[in-house]
């Protein structure tokens, strides 16, 4: 590897992080448009079931708790890498993956339950928008999980270097971003059905 100066490396990391912020902005627009579409279609039930008939508040509470806790654990992982603490970083990342997988498992159980009840995405415009919104978030979480697993392997193989720090910083940005999106899903998609 070329021994580029630390200043150059640091500049590259800063550029990458700026680029990642831009990506998140683009992704925020993507989610906003799906949210707007959901809002437009929120009463297009086509005499099918609505959210109040389908949603289970316990499942929702568990999903939300898992995802919000995982945001804490990834912050702790980030903190551990900054202190160059390899073991702790791996432990917290593994915790994050477990929590994230739990969230996804509950989500898949919920959605497949709806499909089994005949309330799949093809049932009505409302359900199409619901499945697409929640599914897009779930796909992002899946991508985040693959990313976190890759970083765990890299920490184990190579320890913590500036690249890893930058990557983990971006992953935790991404993860917090998904948390914010979930809070919007929670408040705009699920919560109104329980009020």
């Amino acid at each position: 590897m070329i021994a580029a100066s630390d200043a150059v490396e640091e500049q590259i990391d800063r550029e990458t992080e700026f680029g990642f912020w831009l990506y998140l902005m683009s992704d925020a627009v993507l989610f906003s448009l799906i949210f707007v579409t959901f809002a437009v279609m929120s009463s297009n039930l086509a005499s099918g079931p609505g959210g109040a008939d389908l949603f289970d508040i316990k499942n929702l509470a568990m999903q939300t708790a898992l995802l919000l806790t995982s945001s804490l654990t990834i912050a702790l992982a980030h903190h551990a890498t900054e202190g160059r603490n390899t073991t702790r970083a791996v432990v917290w990342l593994v915790m994050t993956c477990i929590l994230g997988t739990g969230f996804l498992a509950l989500e898949i159980r919920e959605l497949s339950g709806f499909v089994a009840e005949g309330a799949g995405p093809g049932r009505s415009g409302y359900l199409s928008a619901f499945f697409t919104l929640v599914g897009t978030h779930g796909l992002h979480v899946t991508a985040g999980l693959i990313w976190a697993l890759t970083l765990i392997v890299q920490i184990v193989l190579r320890g913590i270097d500036h690249r890893l720090l930058s990557r983990l910083a971006r992953l935790s940005l991404f993860w917090h971003f998904l948390d914010i999106v979930w809070i919007a899903v929670f408040s705009l998609v699920y919560l109104p059905e329980f009020l």
Binding site: T37, V40, M41, N44, L45, A46, G48, P121, G122, R123, S124, G125, Y126, L127, S128, A129, F131, T132
Partner: peptide
């Protein structure tokens, strides 16, 4: 799905 269909609650 029914995002843009005439039936099924599309828009």
């Amino acid at each position: 799905m029914h995002f843009f269909t005439n039936d099924g609650g599309g828009n």
